[in-house]
Amino acid sequence: MHDMDLEYAIEVEDLETYYGDRQILRGVSLKVAPEEIMVIMGGSGSGKSTLLRYILGLNPPHAGTIKLLGNDISKISSQELYLLKKDIGVSFQSGALMRSLSVGENICMPLKEHTKLDENTMHIMARMKLEVVNLSGFEDLMPAELSGGMIKRAAIARAIVMDPKLLFFDEPSAGLDPVVAAELDELILHLRSALKMTIVVVTHELDSAFKIADRITILDQGKILLTGTTEEVKNSDDRRIQDLLNRRPKQEEIDPEKYLDILLGKKARQVP
């Protein structure tokens, strides 16, 4: 595909999603340019992981459109979608390596699925990618024998083995010690400069976000508060954004009437 001529690698428009009756995303629009690193930030329950799931096509949107490399993922045929997956790499929060396969076999999975390379070539490519993530020599181990940071790096190796144009990270540094987390940030920057990938990172780690991001999107309660460069985010005078940046607990004013209703388990106070 010919996406370098595209204006945007990822375009999300007016995305609305529900979990049961509860609305999670309320009209989210987001554009990511080619070779850009976009960080999606927000507190727990802000909808950032949900947004990632919908961009990846793991759930069908209730309203709105999602375009990856110019293809509307809910309109293209299943065969086109299948081909599009070659250009997408994802590193999940828990790594999501297949526990029944060795690290090397895990990394070869996308190659086995999408190419007709012979076994030896695949293993050479897997070793090259392990080298990129500093895990060379670990291809014969099982995922259960790796530490948390190693699992994440192996998952990144699997995500980049097809040299995808779009690379997604879900909470790359969650649960890792600061040194390993910093190494992962370096790795993300390196992947963009060396392999020219468009990268979307979902995280709530401030340091890491400011270090790697070209632009940051801040989600709160299913809405985008702001999309802008790191400077714009730092200088924003929105209170919620500043709460998030300065780790201040939310200071919402409590309406005594409403609070009473919550305690009494009433949905809405009836007016007599």
Binding site: R53, L56, L58, K85, F92, S94, A96, M109
Partner: peptide, 11 residues
Amino acid sequence: SQEIDALRVIG
């Protein structure tokens, strides 16, 4: 453990 999701994004 999200392995099914991983399968789906690989295609």
